[in-house]
């Protein structure tokens, strides 16, 4: 564990907590894409399949449970909670996210480190996570400005993988044989997809306006 990865995990945790806070306290998911949340639930479900078979640390297992629990709870809230469900913007959240799942699965079947069931699904989760934010970014463009909590959620979610990139650079220089091109490229693509969001988000900080 290094400071970059810890900061990355804490940023990721913060993004999930901000979203749960928004949905649970003000009972609203306005501006939040259910499709992105569904993709993230699939990402965690396929990435943490080894949660019961390979123990790394208490921290690792705890965080996996938090991410699994929170992502599925958010989907449940947005789909079935009567108050929250009413605030979901169904007409605008129309990105065909299932069109993202299949190509990621095919790509995982073609490009992976080992051809085993767990490894292919784990690789699939990496590719899917890289594009999972797309429905949210499209929804953001359609609904124009968004509330602060949703903006902070997206900012933290984009930032965590950027910190992971610093972690991979650090581990590459400090650990022999630490080379994972698939993870690195997927993480880089994921972070680059947030580039224009970060640009407008920082403009907001500088200009003091809402996220246009």
């Amino acid at each position: 564990m290094n400071i970059f990865r810890l900061a990355g995990d804490m940023t990721h945790l913060a993004s999930v907590l901000v979203l749960l806070l928004k949905i649970h306290t003000i009972k609203s998911c306005a501006g939040v894409s259910l499709r992105t949340q569904e993709l993230y639930a699939i990402v965690f479900a396929t990435r943490y399949l080894d949660i019961f078979t390979s123990f790394v640390s208490v921290y690792n297992t705890f965080m996996k449970l938090v991410f699994l629990g929170s992502s599925f709870s958010i989907v449940w809230y947005m789909r079935y909670h009567k108050a929250v469900h009413r605030t979901y913007d169904r007409e605008q959240d129309t990105f065909r996210h299932w069109f993202l799942v299949l190509p990621c699965l095919v790509l995982a079947l073609l490009i992976h480190e080992k051809f085993t069931f767990l490894e292919v699904l784990w690789t699939f989760s990496l590719y899917l996570e890289a594009v999972a934010i797309l429905p949210q970014l499209v929804l953001l463009q359609r609904t124009r400005n968004i509330d602060n909590l949703t903006g902070q959620y997206i900012f933290l979610l984009g930032g965590y993988r950027g910190l992971y990139i610093l972690n991979w650079i650090y581990r590459y220089f400090t650990e022999p044989h630490f080379v994972h091109w698939i993870t690195w490229i997927a993480g880089l693509v994921q972070t680059l997809l947030y580039a224009d969001f970060f640009y407008y988000y920082f403009l907001r900080f500088i200009g003091g306006r809402g996220v246009e």
Partner: peptide, 10 residues
């Protein structure tokens, strides 16, 4: 052994 290392990242 690079491939057999545990996946220690989230």
């Amino acid at each position: 052994e690079a491939n057999n290392e545990k996946k220690d990242e989230l």
